[in-house]
């Protein structure tokens, strides 16, 4: 019996010691910045078929001495309007090296522009940016240890750009149109790549209700107008109700019909609602 107790004590001590050593050895490289996302590389923004297409790459450096499999990498923008997913993929991080993760994402242009407006409408200083979070989650050491890494930064879309939001209201005081003025743009700004010169119009209609987002760019300034019915909020609600009832969703951009899913419509309505709320707080024209 004494031998059993002695052996049990020895075994628990050895296992505890081994676990603590393993923990220290495994944690130190992570705590010392063993996995670090680098800058995005060669990011370009183009407009294709009513969608904003972002392409580029994200480099992630790992100084761990083993490959880390099934690492989930997410890149998204989060604001009061919700979450705009930019990338969500699983990769294997090579041991002691840099892994390049390609980015190729498409977001409906109307949603992207309204999202950008919402994220910057409250700024007082010049400059337009997109708050972006890169999150890396994975397990290593035979899946016994896990790590999560989130990096928040702002992608500069324009250094000198300014955004102001105004509204037109109906007799009941509800917002019937939102007017957004974007000024101080230069051709080198990233935002100029997805609001090109001229006028573009995106219209979403479901079951007789219709909302139009108009983008008009002239030189260093742009105007975004959101209109739809007598009360924008009611029209947005009607769009969702009609989609839920099974009515067909029609999305047109620059005169061409583009496919839009019910989820896509929900995301668009969410950002538009947020813009209407911001416009409600703004002055009356």
């Amino acid at each position: 019996m004494k031998a059993f107790v002695g052996l049990m004590k020895l075994a628990t001590t050895v296992v505890t010691f081994a676990l603590v050593v393993m923990l220290v050895i495994a944690i130190l490289p992570i705590a010392a910045g063993g996995i670090s996302p680098g800058e995005t590389t060669d990011m370009t923004a183009t407009v294709e078929d009513g969608e904003l297409r972002l392409t580029g790459g994200l480099s992630i450096t790992s100084s761990l001495n083993e490959d880390v499999e099934d690492v989930r990498i997410r890149m998204y923008s989060q604001s009061e309007s919700g979450t705009l997913d930019i990338m969500d993929s699983a990769v294997t991080l090579a041991a002691g090296g840099t892994t390049e993760v390609p980015i190729d994402v498409r977001v409906p242009i109307a949603e992207a522009v309204v999202y950008m407006i919402n994220a910057n409408a409250d700024k007082e200083a010049p400059g337009i940016g997109l708050p972006v979070t890169v999150s890396i989650d994975g397990t290593y050491f035979h899946r016994m240890l896990g790590f999560g890494f989130a990096l928040d930064y702002e992608v500069p879309l324009s250094e000198s750009g300014t955004i102001s939001v105004d509204s037109v209201r109906n007799a009941a005081g509800e917002v019937s149109r939102v007017d957004v003025d974007i000024g101080g743009l230069s051709d080198s700004d990233m935002v100029s790549q997805f609001i090109p010169e001229g006028t573009q119009e995106a219209t979403v209609s479901v079951g007789g209700s219709e909302v139009t987002v108009s983008l008009e760019r002239t030189g260093g300034s742009a105007k975004v107008t959101v209109s739809g019915g007598d009360s924008l909020k009611q029209t947005l609600d009607a769009l969702l109700d009609a989609a839920e009832a099974g009515d067909e969703i029609t999305f047109e951009y620059a005169g061409e019909t583009v496919a839009m899913t019910a989820e896509g419509l929900e995301d668009l309505v969410s950002v538009l609602r947020d813009l209407v709320d911001k416009a409600s707080e703004a002055g009356v024209i």
């Binding site: 992570i30 896990g146 989130a150």
Partner: peptide
């Protein structure tokens, strides 16, 4: 603007 590291 921010970094968060979780060790599980």
């Amino acid at each position: 603007s921010g970094v968060r590291v979780d060790l599980r």
